[in-house]
Amino acid sequence: MLRYVYAHDLARFPRLADTMFRDRAEQFRTRLGWDVSVDARGWEQDDYDALDPLYVIWEAPDGTHGGSMRFLPTIGRTMVNDHFAHLTGGVRIESPLIWECTRFCISPRAEGPAARKAAAALVLGAGEMMARAALEHFVGVFDGRMERIYRLYGVEPDVIGAAGFGAERIGVGLWEMKPEAWPKILGRLGIDRATSLRWVAQSFGGAAAPAPELKSA
């Protein structure tokens, strides 16, 4: 199932948080070779994790992290505006209708169909956030290695600007979820919109909302 969790609430999901930050260490440091910091617990975290971002997390059937990404509003601090304005033609990408999406991570423990399902789930989660917050775009920074991952899962960004070549290429990209993409994504997960909205309600619905424990589809 998909969970939408602010950083300050991650403590309520210790296993999910632990496996998410470890999977991020494996993906970003070990496999992609990024210069990221990993703490004594084996967690990869950066300054933006400290800004109480919203994580969209695909929880695998065993309760561990299957995939995740991180959202921050662009009217606050973002990676793109803090460090990559030279790639956007000097345009500061700031709007209530645009969130930044970073640390797109499919669990390195997931393979084949499970990994593809996690990717589809993250696309669905992004679409749900677009609907929930009236968003028009997501913006994010990526490198050449991430670009290959995005291509693998069919979620290539529309590139605003990039510099460098091959794996060292750094770019700023945009994503959106067009209405016609919904049936395809729901189909890949084998769920209907009602199920997806139930997951949204479970995360955002507060204690008063019914919280049945659904088996992930």
Binding site: R92, E94, S95, I98, E136, D158, I160, L174
Partner: peptide, 17 residues
């Protein structure tokens, strides 16, 4: 010489400003 998507983001950034 940019994508329509990028253009929309430039316009949105300008609108917000």
């Amino acid at each position: 010489d940019i994508s329509e998507h990028t253009l929309r983001v430039y316009i949105e950034a300008a609108r917000h400003k």
